[in-house]
């Protein structure tokens, strides 16, 4: 019993030091983690449709810049921008993503260029369509119809810009 007690005391001493060290490390880790948010888990891999959502927002913004630079194109380009915004909204709902709440209004004065030409936009739509076709092909059944519609919509945009 006596032996056991002495061992226990020594063990306790070690343990206490280790506990303190560990506590310090945990505190440090928590502080560091706090810089990036409270979730200590690594961020989950992005959804397979996240690139399609990002692309929809990029396209919408490109149209909006072009309209600011060339207001005469507003009637032609605004409905196309609205289609892309609608795509982004539905994709965000589908994958549980949050859309940027406020999109900074594009300003003509701040940009050095005249915005994308309709030829540039058309080229971008064709690339975007191909990406959506590829995404539709590999999408699970419950996502195929939405992604397919987005691919078809992008194709019609390229046609509308001819």
């Amino acid at each position: 019993m006596v032996l056991t007690d002495r061992v226990a005391i020594r063990e306790t001493g070690h343990t206490r030091r280790r506990v303190l060290a560990t506590a310090g490390a945990v505190a440090g880790a928590t502080t560091l983690g706090g810089c990036f948010g409270d979730d200590p888990e690594p961020p989950p891999a992005p959804d397979a449709l996240q690139p399609l959502l990002d692309e929809a927002l990029t396209m919408a913004a490109a149209y909006e810049r072009a309209v600011v630079a060339q207001p005469a194109l507003a009637d032609r380009l605004t409905p196309l921008a609205e289609d892309h915004r609608a795509h982004a909204t539905e994709l965000a709902t589908m994958i549980g993503a949050t859309l940027p709440s406020a999109v900074a209004a594009p300003s003509a004065s701040g940009s050095a260029t005249d915005g994308d030409s309709t030829a540039d936009l058309r080229k971008a739509e064709q690339t975007a369509q191909k990406n959506a076709v590829a995404a539709c092909r590999t999408a699970p059944a419950e996502r195929a119809a939405l992604v397919g519609s987005i691919a078809a919509s992008r194709a019609t945009h390229a046609e509308a810009l001819r």
Binding site: E82, S153, H157, A160
Partner: peptide, 21 residues
């Protein structure tokens, strides 16, 4: 969907496109 857009263009029917064909 593309043909529908072409016919809309010829018929002056707007908008030319749909978000979800």
């Amino acid at each position: 969907a593309i043909r529908a857009t072409r016919w809309r263009k010829l018929g002056g029917i707007t908008p030319l496109t749909m978000a979800f064909p």
